[in-house]
């Protein structure tokens, strides 16, 4: 699987959304991406990419696009 597929799958699993919904998705933009959903997303991403995210990055992870920038810090190019 490509990094993009891994990344998208984490969102789809965490929030029950479709591929088409991903662009522009933001924290608290949909009911499922609340603080509880956020924790789910972060643990799925950490598992998928085998990384440990810093607390600041977990907090800054505010949208589908922003997340790509953050993962780049962990040498994961999406």
């Amino acid at each position: 699987m490509t990094n993009l597929e891994l990344y998208n799958n984490a969102f789809k699993e965490a929030f029950g959304v479709e591929e088409a919904d991903l662009a522009g998705l933001e924290y608290q933009g949909i009911a499922n991406w609340d603080s509880v959903g956020h924790m789910n997303l972060v643990s799925l991403l950490e598992d998928a990419f085998d990384i440990m995210m810093d607390t600041d990055d977990i907090i800054d992870f505010s949208s589908y696009e922003k997340g790509k920038e953050i993962l780049a810090k962990y040498e994961k190019t999406i």
């Binding site: 509880v36 924790m39 789910n40 972060v42 643990s43 950490e46 598992d47 440990m52």
Partner: peptide, 29 residues
Amino acid sequence: SSEIMKNPESRQYPDVITFGFFCRKGNVS
């Protein structure tokens, strides 16, 4: 952690999800 986070019922309990999040591999490492 995976077992808790994947369980749909956990979502109803922020304290349970928070515990599952605490136990995740990244945090324990």
